[in-house]
Write a protein that binds this DNA or RNA. Structure first.
Length: 865
RNA sequence: GGGUUCGUGGUCUAGUGGUAUGACGCCUCCCUUACAAGGAGGAGAUCGGUGGUUCAAUUCCGCCCGGACCCA
């Protein structure tokens, strides 16, 4: 056992950089793979960060929050499984690669581009890893994965086959949301709103053989006119009741379209006549399906006008929009043009306006089982509980099945081939996974359906979420074999005890994970969900690139000790957004110094391993008993993920009770039990603080108490110390009163007081009081000292008076206010009412006529002579 | 536009049907041999606004204002 001294002041930079390396190299946080007991293995399914850039404040905060849970449970439960992954197979990392290398994926062969993605991601992953390690996150670095690695590819493809075999997947040709820049289908959750400058164009269509010569429509997207396949009016609209059945001619393009009725037309807006194009918006899709309309595709996969657009073919949608408007104007079809600002749907990764295209895509069926998925969500414990509402609303509002195919390069291949003759879908053998249909041969030489012998490989890859929704299966080692079917390598981990998740992505990441794992295992993957809020800027504003109010974690990490940043990260109540707050970090910094200095004092006052005394001095036992209470409270807070409360409770007791009160007493104590108490309390404090400030506690613990990491020791439990707590509290009140006396009288706190008398229950604590306050003689009074008391006021117990006297309380109050009351025989006579003694307390003002200064505390009277 | 949620001293925050917690900052005093990045005191809040329920509302309900998130 080491008994090195600690000296000087705390140097966080040196200590933190020392330990961050140690923990990684020594495998301090490695999960014990031989563990098979789910009760002693706290398992956390960490959502792998998307590799799309550098560490931001959200990463910093959410990882620290997870780490509080991991560190506490590692100590309390015995072991923690705390893995780490990188989500690097999706559009986000492809866009990162394009941005970083200033290239376009279209210009490369698929394999070539994939290589570039791997290289770029690797650099980002390396620096990300370093920063996460720098934050002291207690990840098991021997348990890491990338969502693009072969093992995960196999697992994703297994998941695909399993869901297909269960009848939960289908391929369908239909309108899908499309990003013309990324040139892929995307799912609804990948879109967001963005403001755009645009124009409302009022355009006239000629009526062929109809009740009038022309009709006018308003559109923001004139480039879709070549894709117009019908026009609609509302059946209840008097302005347009002559139009249904008529035929209109599309200006510039000349093709004729029917005018139809549909209740989805908004009568409130515009002219009451709208055009339906394939496709301008979701309404167009519904009309296309409901009225069995033609398909006219005027925009291709890259956002370029097609042959359907005639003279405008080859133009971008933007060019076509301007040119068509000019031509409509010269042809006399443009009635008016008004500039507006409106919201459009864009792809969240590249902010490109989305289109709708009819394509073949793979879907996971979900709409038929929303009730079950809602129930699955209900089975998890939500921290905070209210966040379940978000999940609920999302599930209840689902409108689309989940499109999981993407027309991209760098994802995991969808493992199917199609018969060139009959289009039969050919699946690989599970044992052969992972496969890449583009380079691997199908498992059959001829089509089982038609006997044809050539096959077309599927070129599409999976949506990122199709893989990142499998992290519990990745972490627990899910796999398939001929003999055993689907199994887990570490079944004790599943269900996972905890899933941390940001509140903004409950609806897709968490939801998709629950759905997938539930379908594969029949079990909800998580016992509890910990939702973290967002880090806001100093003024409680959301950080955003456009506002330029982002905070660079690098700068914060360079300026403050990591432990101080972690202290700040513990300021939030679970699920709430919270602001970046440097005050809180400074407070954290002070706590580190305080821990260091207090440890220095403890070390100088006590041997490292003092013998347990037979008898305790009252104050020593009181301290340990109070610490028992604090342990109980703090543990409950940790269990409930109430980190701010745990931190504040612990800090207040350590700082004020232990340092300000107890240590001062201990300095003067001659009792044998004091060194023992100091050491027991000190070791326990280090453990209790360890989840919050792991570096300083590790440094202190290893320096003073030996080589074992404090982070793998058992969490403290109450030892059951007995103490007259009330007497201890009263003793501290007396000490506080004497301190005040010295302050008021300009005396140094270590000045000697000659003669002090105390009336109050301080039995056993006399030595502590006279020791710390340097009192020469301390006298305990059996009776209240000679004082006169006067009634100064009445303190009503409203919780009792209210229900009993109801509306008379006002009169009672004002009578007391003006002094119109009397107390006799313990009863209060006021406003013609008589109040029983239980309903009020008499505030007394005492005067002391004797010699010396008279001080009253809540439970004692102190006289200094 | 709809839903969820938050709004407490200058700043951040706890909390509750009975008059509000702590921290930072501010003011006064003290270099007491762990710590002046410390200690002892003090000032500072009509609990976003407005109606209602109640003997009593910061707390419950309605509306409004402001922020955030989700969904249109």
């Amino acid at each position: 056992m080491s008994t090195d001294d600690i000296e000087g002041s705390y140097d966080p930079e040196a200590v933190e950089s020392k330990w961050r390396g140690h923990w990684v190299n020594d495998g301090t946080y490695e999960y014990d793979e031989s563990n098979t007991d789910p009760n002693t293995a706290y398992s956390i399914d960490t959502p792998p960060p998307t590799v799309s850039g550098s560490l931001h404040m959200g990463h910093l905060y959410s990882h620290i929050a997870q780490d509080f849970a991991a560190r506490y449970h590692r100590m309390a439960d015995g072991d923690a499984f705390f893995p780490f992954g990188y989500d690097d197979n999706g559009i986000a990392s492809e866009r990162l690669t394009e941005r970083e290398l200033d290239i376009r994926h279209q210009d490369y062969e698929r394999r070539e581009f994939q290589e570039l993605c791997r290289e770029v991601c690797q650099e980002y992953e390396a620096s990300f890893t370093e920063e996460i390690q720098e934050l002291g996150i207690s990840i098991d670095w021997s348990n890491t994965y990338k969502t693009i690695e072969p093992r995960v590819q196999r697992l994703s493809q297994l998941s695909f086959l399993d869901l297909y075999e269960q009848g939960r997947e289908y391929k369908q040709r239909g309108p899908a949301i499309w990003c013309p820049d990324c040139e892929t289908a995307i799912s609804q959750v990948e879109t967001e709103d963005a403001e755009r400058d645009a124009h409302f164009n009022d355009i006239t269509f000629e009526i062929v053989d109809g009740p009038r010569d022309e009709v006018t429509i308003a559109t923001t997207r004139p480039e879709l006119i070549p894709a117009c396949v019908a026009m609609f009016v509302h059946p209840d609209d008097d302005r347009t009741d002559d139009l249904p059945g008529a035929t209109a001619r599309v200006p510039l393009f000349g093709h004729e379209v029917q005018i139809l009725e549909d209740e989805r037309v908004d009568m409130e807006k515009g002219t009451g006549v709208v055009m339906c194009c394939t496709f301008g918006d979701q309404n167009d899709i519904e009309w296309y399906q409901a009225h069995d309309l033609d398909l006219r595709v005027a925009i291709d996969e890259s956002g370029t006008m097609t042959e359907e657009a005639g003279d405008y073919a080859g133009m971008s949608t933007h060019e076509a929009r301007e040119t068509i408007v000019e031509d409509l104007d010269s042809a006399g079809h443009l009635v008016s043009r008004e500039a507006i600002v409106h919201d459009v749907q864009v792809h969240e990764r590249c902010e490109t306006d989305i289109e709708y295209r009819v394509t073949d895509q793979w879907y996971v069926e979900m709409l038929d089982k929303t009730d079950e998925y809602l129930e699955a969500g209900r089975e998890m414990d939500w921290y905070p509980e209210k966040m379940f509402t978000r999940y609920k609303h999302w599930v209840e509002g689902l409108e689309w099945d989940w499109c999981i195919s993407r027309q991209r390069d760098s994802g995991i291949p969808i493992p199917v081939w199609y018969c060139e003759s009959c289009d039969e879908t050919i699946f690989p053998e599970k044992a052969d996974l992972p496969v890449d249909p583009l380079s691997d041969e199908p498992p059959v030489v001829e089509c089982p359906d038609c006997g044809h012998d050539s096959f077309e490989p599927e070129e599409d890859v999976f949506d990122t979420w199709a893989t990142s929704s499998l992290t519990p299966l990745i972490n627990a080692g899910w796999d398939w074999s001929e003999e055993d079917g689907f199994t887990f390598e570490n079944p004790e981990l599943y269900q996972f005890d905890l899933r941390p998740q940001g509140h903004d992505i409950i609806s897709f990441w968490l939801f998709h994970t629950v759905v997938k794992c539930y379908e594969h295992t029949g079990e909800v993957p998580f016992e509890s969900v910990l939702i973290n809020g967002h880090v806001l800027d100093r003024d409680r504003r959301k950080m955003s690139k456009s506002k330029g109010n982002g905070i660079d974690p690098r700068e914060v990490m360079d300026e403050y000790p990591i432990d101080a940043i972690r202290y700040w990260a513990a300021s939030t109540s679970v699920g709430e957004d919270f602001p970046f707050n440097e005050n809180s970090m400074r407070q954290g910094e002070k706590l580190l110094q305080k821990l260091w200095n207090a440890s220095k004092l403890v070390d100088s006052l006590a041997d490292t391993e003092p013998a347990e005394p037979d008898e305790f001095a009252a104050m020593d036992e009181w301290l340990l008993a109070s610490l028992d209470d604090v342990i109980e409270t703090v543990t409950a807070y940790f269990e409930a993920h109430e980190y701010a409360k745990a931190r504040d409770e612990l800090r207040a007791f350590f700082w004020h009770t232990f340092c300000d009160d107890y240590l001062e007493i201990a300095k003067q104590s001659e009792a044998d039990s004091t060194p023992y108490t100091l050491r027991v309390a000190h070791r326990r404090f280090l453990k209790l603080f360890a989840p919050f400030v792991p570096h300083v506690t590790e440094e202190l613990h290893t320096t003073l108490y030996g080589d074992d990491s404090v982070h793998t020791l058992a969490w403290p439990e109450p030892e059951g110390y007995e103490s007259n707590r009330a007497a201890g509290e009263t003793a501290l009140e007396v000490i506080s009163a004497l301190r005040g006396y010295k302050t008021d009288n300009g005396l140094a706190l270590n000045a000697t007081l000659g003669d002090v008398a105390v009336y109050g229950d301080i039995e056993g604590f006399e030595d502590a009081i006279s020791g710390v306050m340097h009192v020469e003689t301390l006298e305990r009074l059996d009776e209240a000292p000679a004082i006169s008391t006067e009634v100064a006021g009445i303190d009503l117990d409203y919780s009792k008076v209210g229900p009993e006297f109801g509306s008379k309380v006002g009169a009672i109050d004002s009578a007391i206010e003006t002094g119109e009351y009397a107390v006799s025989n313990g009863q209060l006579h006021v406003a013609d009412e008589v109040l029983d003694s239980k309903l009020f307390e008499v505030e007394e003002e005492r005067t002391f006529a004797g010699e010396g200064e008279f001080i009253e505390t809540e439970n004692a009277v102190v006289i200094v002579r």
